[in-house]
Amino acid sequence: MSNLIELLYVLVLAGFVGFEVIKKVTPTLHTPLMSATNAISGISLVGSLVAAGSSHQVSQILGFVAVTAATINVVGGFLITERMLKMFKRKERKS
């Protein structure tokens, strides 16, 4: 039970930090924000890895599909975020 409380602390504080940090994200970058948080939430990968890497066959199958799905998000999400961010340039122009 004390462990559950500990996890709740983590949840509440992380949610708070997230709120403060993301509030400051410029609206121009809202799409990259979505794809970036999507890549980051691909962290479910670590849970999937443990399942796929266990000795239990059911876990291996479920874990395999989960690893595939989460990897698509992590790899694809970060790559596409970078691709988008590269486009946001500031032109030097004489005014």
């Binding site: 890497g53 266990s54 698509i72």
Partner: peptide, 29 residues
Amino acid sequence: TLLSGEIVSWEWIVSGIVIGSAIGTAMAI
């Protein structure tokens, strides 16, 4: 996570990561 000692079999992990990376990269490009 991979080095944590909890992983005892690798074939499913490797296949998942390879397939996922391929799909993810293709989608991104």
